[in-house]
């Protein structure tokens, strides 16, 4: 019996973003979080237990949580309040950790799962932040769970590092951040899709959590955005002609250019 909470985020689909204006960009469940959710559901199938998903976000983020319900998650909670707006990773991990404490008080907590990072901010900081605040061993970049030993209270996890795969063992409760190779997402079953459609996400506000107001949202953030701007445009390069009529000639011209450029840059 493994009591798990997955922390998820709704994000704009950055594969659809090409300009500064993000209006009309579809919102999706952060892909890494989808893999974390799937991992939790698979662990539940293997060891028993239950899975709760938790998100901090605006009211419309409930859609991402419903998606998780369709994956086979048991309970979904949205932590949502104007007081949380503008939170950086420091304030976000503070608020999410407060939500996790409340869940732990209600149903117990053995394992927290997060995605490696969210594709909008790409910080990978909230998972470690939560682990630090709850004093949990953090196991980042998880690619697989080898074993959960419920009697000993340990978890054995494979981590994707830059030069290989490391196997670590940590005591429960622990926190994992998951990468895409963790698993293949499955199609939602029909009963779960129906359950998701009818599911009413629980909403907790700042008043429901044991938090200090000055540590929430923008007020509780240590970083501020000074400026947002478009990335510098690259100078358009040179098109070498003949690509379709004379591929051999174009290839030769390209190599000449590269060698010439290398020679001048050596000087």
């Amino acid at each position: 019996m493994l009591r798990m909470v997955v922390c998820v985020k709704q994000v704009p689909d950055t594969t659809e973003v090409h300009t500064l204006i993000r209006e009309g960009v579809p919102s999706i469940l952060n892909p890494f979080d989808a893999h974390a959710t799937e991992a939790a559901v698979q662990l539940k199938e293997k060891y028993g237990g239950h899975v709760t998903v938790l998100s901090m976000g605006p009211p419309q983020a409930a859609e991402a949580l419903k998606k998780c319900i369709s994956f086979g998650v048991d309970r979904a909670i949205l932590v949502s309040d104007r007081a949380f707006a503008g939170a950086d990773t420091l304030a976000t991990s503070y608020t999410v950790a407060a939500g996790l404490r409340k869940i732990a008080g209600e149903e117990g907590l053995d394992l927290v799962l997060c995605g490696k990072q969210a594709i909008d901010g790409d910080t990978a900081q909230v998972g470690p932040g939560i682990a630090c605040r709850l004093d949990l061993p953090q196991i980042t970049y998880a690619v697989g769970v080898d074993e959960v030993d419920l009697e000993e209270g340990t978890i054995t996890v494979q981590r994707r590092l830059e030069k290989g795969v490391q196997t670590v063992q940590a005591p429960l409760p622990a926190l994992l951040t998951c990468v895409e190779e963790m698993n293949e997402l499955r199609y939602a079953s029909l009963p779960n899709m129906i359950k998701a459609a009818r599911y009413e996400v629980e909403v907790w506000t700042a008043a429901d959590l044991d938090t200090e107001p000055e540590r929430l949202g923008l007020k509780g953030s240590a970083t501020v955005v000074e400026r947002i701007f478009a990335p510098p445009e690259h100078e358009r390069g040179e098109i070498i002609p003949g690509g379709s009529e004379d591929p051999a000639g174009a290839a030769a011209a390209l190599l000449d250019k590269l060698i010439e450029q290398a020679a001048t840059s050596e000087e």
């Binding site: 420091l90 470690p128 932040g129 590092l161 240590a222 970083t223």
Partner: peptide
């Protein structure tokens, strides 16, 4: 991989700002 694992833990413990990547 290592630096991002470490920095998030340190900054949270110190209660300071951390800008990623």
């Amino acid at each position: 991989t290592l630096g991002r694992d470490l920095a998030g833990a340190i900054a949270t413990e110190l209660g300071t700002g951390l800008t990623a990547d």
